[in-house]
Design a protein around this nucleic acid. Sequence first.
RNA 1: GGGCGAUUGGCGCAGUGGUAGCGCAGCAGCUUUACACGCUGUGGGUCGGGGGUUCGAAUCCCUCAUCGCCCA
Length: 981
Amino acid sequence: MSEIPKANEPQSVESKWYDFWLKQECFTADPARVSATRPAYSIVIPPPNVTGVLTLGHVLNNTIQDILARKARMDGKEVLWLPGTDHAGIATQNVVEKTMKKAGEIKHRNDLGREALVAKIWDWKEKYGGIILQQLKALGASCDWTRTRFTMDPEYSRCVQKVFVDLYKKGLIYRGKRMVNWCPASLTALSDEEVTMKEQKGFMYHFKVEVAEVPGTFLTIATTRPETIPGDTAVAVNPKDPRYAHLIGKHIVRPLPVEVPREQKLIPIIGDDHVDFEFGTGVLKVTPAHDKADFEIGQRHQLPVVEVIEADGKMNALAGQDLNGLDRFAARKLAVEKLTELGSLEKQEPYTNNVGYSERADVPIEPRLSEQWFLKYPSVDASKKCVAGGEMKFFPDRWAKVYDHWMGGIQDWCISRQLWWGHRIPVWTAEFPSEEIAKQSEVLLRELGDKVTFHREGKKISAATAHDGTEHFFAMHGWHQDPDVLDTWFSSWLWPFATMGWTGDKDTDAKNPTLQAFYPTTDLVTGPDIIFFWVARMIMAGYEYMGDLPFRNVYFTGIIRDKQGRKMSKSLGNSPDPLDLIAKYGADALRFGVMRAAPLGQDILFDEQNVELGRNFCNKLWNACRFRQMQGGEAQGEIDVSKLRSDDKWILLKLHAAIKELDTAFAEYRFSDATATLYRFFYSEYCDWYVESCKAVLPRPATDAPSPSPLNGERAGVRGEDGQDAGAVENTPPHPGPLPPVGRGGEGEDARKAAAAANVVAVMDFVLSHTLRLFHPFVPFITEELWHGMGYATDMPDAQGGKSIMHAPWPKPFDTDFRDHYSLDDCYLEFVNAKFDLVSKGRNLRAEARIAANKKVKFIFKSDRDLPPNDIEVIKLLLNAETLEINPEYVPGKNVSSVKAEMGELYLPLEGHVDVAGETVRLAKELEKIVVEITKVEQKLANPSFAQKVPAEVLTEHRKRLEDWIAKRDHVQKAIDGLKE
RNA sequence: GGGCGAUUGGCGCAGUGGUAGCGCAGCAGCUUUACACGCUGUGGGUCGGGGGUUCGAAUCCCUCAUCGCCCA
């Protein structure tokens, strides 16, 4: 048999258990198991990009979901955590196109054509599409992988089409020529949400133009975009502006393009209320083709729309021969040069403004007039109400305001994209030779009934359909399908129900067990950056198509930043690969470290130290179990109430308190509070105090005894596929014989000691078996390993932890019966706390006297009460005392250091080598602090209105506080006097 | 310009009216019945500034400042 691993070895343990969970189908949700006593719990994963790789953001987000899912399983719920990926239109098409260009396979996507490129992307998806899901497995994510969905699965695509057709039928989807956000790099329209405003340093150019009708009169125009001058079709002033109002109706000479022969175009001066007096010079150049606000002015005044910038961001012939073919930014420079040459440019000054950038391609977007599909949002009122009314809760709740504000002012959603990868718009059009023939076709279409929705404009018919047969029909009869695809979010907004097999047919859906059991979902965990993109839209789709909200709670994570507070980015190189961290520290360590650093509603400053801390924590857990295991004895023996020591009751009460705290933390989604509780309970309460106190009872290990029973993976009872405990038969049983007799007392004494030790071990088992369960959602692998290794799984029914800790019941705070039975009275908390206060103060005395921690010394304790022998033993052990003399009559002589504790006074004779000067200084300092405190309390009590107005218990508390401080002062004073003698 | 959030020891955070706390880092000591990925002890903060309410303010109100996010 191998040596005891001194440290936890996550690498082998983690993959072993993940395989086990999969084989045992632990993550598979079965709607048939849902009942009144076994409620459903569901989460749908925010689908990562199919080409994505795991980032720390995913780690945070998915760890939270896993914690919720695992906690719900332990709460006895039927859990569905539904995973999947998103086709991510622009991002994915870009990746594949770029790769092919780099490899020299194509120069442009047109080299391949639509069908071939889409086929290539599918190949790519098949090859690399699963990567991120595999990585989630390394993290321990307990998703139901049998239900993995992709937004372009055939069934899912069918949902998208159905919804499109339905909204089209309702008149909410329409096609129109509008100003849209155009991405000149990706060559597609974008929604408003895909545009991020960035501050940009540029120039404000002031140039003058002559009024044609009044030669010699000039107007000065300020602009940041002189390259668009050739597209100007008017200049506008505010009709109330006394400087310019009289010029309305006249014309100016447009300086660009420079016409050859030189006959500059004249454009009108118009009056428009929307012109801001204050901005620039108060004269606005109007470029209807290239600016949203200008377009609206143009509409109001019937101005011509002159496009001078092409889709790819290059200037065209209408911009004049100087600018023609130049990129828009190069054109800006040249336009400035031209204005200078003409003597038109008056000045240019540095200017910072906000420019919309394409979120994907990171280039400035170009407002552009184009024909696109738009959606007028459905179910807006219900969607607003459910959040405002508290039916759906946001954590932290301030996001509810942000949501409400956005919902209050939403604009129609531009849903078409000029891409090939995605859901193609299910609309076919045909232009017929004559209106007559078109009308005949209408009759044919009408025969198709519900399957098709159409409308005719003259000779042209557009028809929308989500029906297989009709698609075929259209293809056969020479109709043309709209070339555009839908915005990716137009598919992901259906995620909560489309992933569950929604069809849109009421009868079918009513018989869909998954949908019936798991919709609405319980929790959604996502980043606030997609609150509009995704969350808000899912809510609207939920109401529109399911008649109900899609989730009850939304948890918004923070953003992961580096320890300097900068966002994680590839270019900064400050984004560690989670898989490297998992390889180095283990997934449990990464999970715990990240969760501990992630308070609700705050960004997370990531530092590898967090992960290191997580690893240390797991190691501590490992070793605490190892220590228990070294004691031998039966697993989870009976606890004999009559043998419970104060320390045993104390740790049980602390466990009870920890469970209560955890319940609160979970109810409020405060995960960092939960980890803080676990950390404190386990380190400070269990390891530092309780285990140490047990050493007063546990037998000292015989030096020549064989190695204690090992706790390692081989023995940890992984079951084979047949459900049998594969390892148990041939391996040594986990628990060796009874505790060895030790000590020199008689037979009775030995038996008594052994029984006392066995009882302490039983308490340890009780606490550890609870602790492992409390930890399991956070650190699933190590807890599963220990759960089996410690033998806690053995006596449990399969469904209650016998197979896996993930099905063990989540601990409940102890009820009155339990506490009565074990006489867990709060007085034990106070008593043991006081004991530990005494120990702390005694240890401090040792340290102040510079006595090495390993040196045994004599203490005298002047106690104000009788102490049971165990408590004396514990104090003695924890003080590392050679002897602990209990003497209520003790009068200290010279060279005795002392301290007043809650329980009484503790003395440490220093046997001659006391540093009188040093000790005097120390005590003087302490006295000083005490006096400050006394003054503070005295001042408060001396205030007449204090006594009058303060609640009685506050007054009593202050008086008691004063008494305590005075007693301490007297003690210290006595000690100082003693030193002087 | 509007809204939201933050500001507490070197760092990260908790603390919503009653003695300022935790973790990390620091310092000192320690192979002590598991764990040096550990143990013990310890120093360090007038709670961003100013004003107000109150017997009493990190906490409530006003105001200013700095940083961050969202919207226009």
